[in-house]
Design a binder for these strands. Sequence first.
DNA 1: GGCGCATGGTTTTATGATGCAACCACACAA
DNA 2: TTGTGTGGTTGCATCATAAAACCATGCGCC
Lengths: 154, 154
Amino acid sequence: MVKRTSFEGDSCPIARSLEAIGDWWSLLIIREALFGLRRFGEFQSKLGMAKNILSVRLRSLVDHGILATAPASDGSAYQEYVLTAKGRGTFPILVALRQWSEEFDDHPEEIATILVDREKGRPVKKLEMRAEDGRLLSPADTTLKPRPARRRSA
Amino acid sequence: MVKRTSFEGDSCPIARSLEAIGDWWSLLIIREALFGLRRFGEFQSKLGMAKNILSVRLRSLVDHGILATAPASDGSAYQEYVLTAKGRGTFPILVALRQWSEEFDDHPEEIATILVDREKGRPVKKLEMRAEDGRLLSPADTTLKPRPARRRSA
DNA sequence: GGCGCATGGTTTTATGATGCAACCACACAA
DNA sequence: TTGTGTGGTTGCATCATAAAACCATGCGCC
């Protein structure tokens, strides 16, 4: 594209998220990182993506504060890529994507894995939107409000 | 790209979701659709995107069963694009993206809106992962299992 | 009943992001 | 010193994207 129309200045938080992780590979890299991968070669062979693209994506994720480079770990003089808190914070997004596929995919029989609670081995519950007081909310029960001018409470 | 490495056959449900809605504009179109937009021109002027791209994306979303075309509504001989159940099912994904931005964005003061419960006007709760029995789960509390061969229960 | 304008697209064209393969740098081993 | 594996970077071809021009239809209106 003539410049992939950056959403950087956009005031919508969804657009801002997409700016950081909305491209073709980022969420899959994060998925693997959540799964424990850390090394360039691990990502590359697991995802089967071109090394140059991986290189660019990793750098971009580091720039966005989603991954951080750690000096080593197993002695090899290379670096590892580990998730930051911000990176781990994407987990609900991945779960939402997964559950959407599980619920609506046209060929669910092609889905190989299910996400389960490690302790019981049972599927996790579907994510649900709730109000502050716990009421279950549908999209229609919500609306957008302008962000209140946040007086510095700190 | 030499063919944007389709994830179509991938067995990972996250990849499958991204195949449908993981490209640059789809989620924003869906966001606007959830907000009530229906007409080509509405999307185009609200999102400020090129009309050809919008055209391609709308067709793709229709092909994926996320939007459906409705014959008219206000008499004009054109069509409208309305969300299907599958389309409305993306709502948690959008909420997750929004909340991630709200929590981790480097410039939260640029975020213009907050999502609130329509009835009380209070922010919605953060999405949380829970086990079947209600226990709160962190990423580390979960794991993947192979999908059980689903014997046809229907 | 022809003219202009709005809506809803499609076509054309350039740019640049992506993918592949080859190449490079470094560490370690033999 | 040569060889091998890891971790990248550099060309280059190709395809998707974006911007703008173009087209088609409906409608007011004169």
